[in-house]
Write a protein that binds this DNA or RNA. Sequence first.
DNA 1: AATTGCTACAACCGCAAGTCC
DNA 2: TGGACTTGCGGTTGTAGCAAT
Length: 267
Amino acid sequence: MVQEEIRKGPWTEHEDVQLVFYVNLFGDRRWDFIAKVSGLKRTGKSCRLRWVNYLHPGLKRGKMTTHEERLVLELHSKWGNRWSRIARKLPGRTDNEIKNYWRTHLRKKAQERKQAMSPPSSISNSSSSASSNAPVDYMPVAETKERSFYDTGGVLAPSSWISRSSTSSNNPPMDLMPVMETKGRSFYDTGGDLEIFAPKGKKDKEVEESEKVYSMDDIWKDIDLSENCQTITSPIWNYCPDLLWMMEEEESKMFPAINDPFFALAG
DNA sequence: AATTGCTACAACCGCAAGTCC
DNA sequence: TGGACTTGCGGTTGTAGCAAT
């Protein structure tokens, strides 16, 4: 069999646009299907990841607020490395983002906290073992230069928007806008904007549980709020605000696959 | 100015759970 | 009911950019 070549590595802008288009068309569930019909030489998995972590319109970008930071600390101490679960409590943040943030920033904070709370007993001195094998990541952290991420009043644009030259460099510096502390509906809960393909009755216990703490009323209120205000969305949407109508116009040119009989099914 | 080490984050991998037939 | 397939999750890696030396 001739196996089709699978692309890996950084996504190009064109791939992003294409993925956004097809997700709008088919919803954000059937990733293998999307990967196939879109003509992207990516796996469904890869498409999903790109969407969830980068392209989803509900994504909040920019620095974690102190509120979010505190929340992460609290929830992590409660749940451990259940990143997706923690992410559900921070609308607009992804599990990946939180995971990364934890590793680079909060591990130390958590450890300090823990030490402050418990008497200084025998603290293991394995500071070099910042290895990822450690169970819950309360690692002793060697004395390092600490950037004051706590007192960033303003919002710094992530370097990826400013100076990354490869994948996302062409995206706009949307993070220069102030980050609003809004709580949008976590996209993990929704299965995306289009739920036509979403499996029914799949609401897990965790979500229900989380709703006890963060009620749907709150969530929808927040959505209203964030819709009225100018929500910061993922870059591709800022970059191509008129993406959808543009797509309609361009689709036949840009994505020949759209004319496939396949689309008759979905349309 | 060049080098080195660190930070930030996108993306991949493997596994487990869920769904479909 | 069980096997194949898909999706979701957590862990890990790769790399660009920046600051310190």
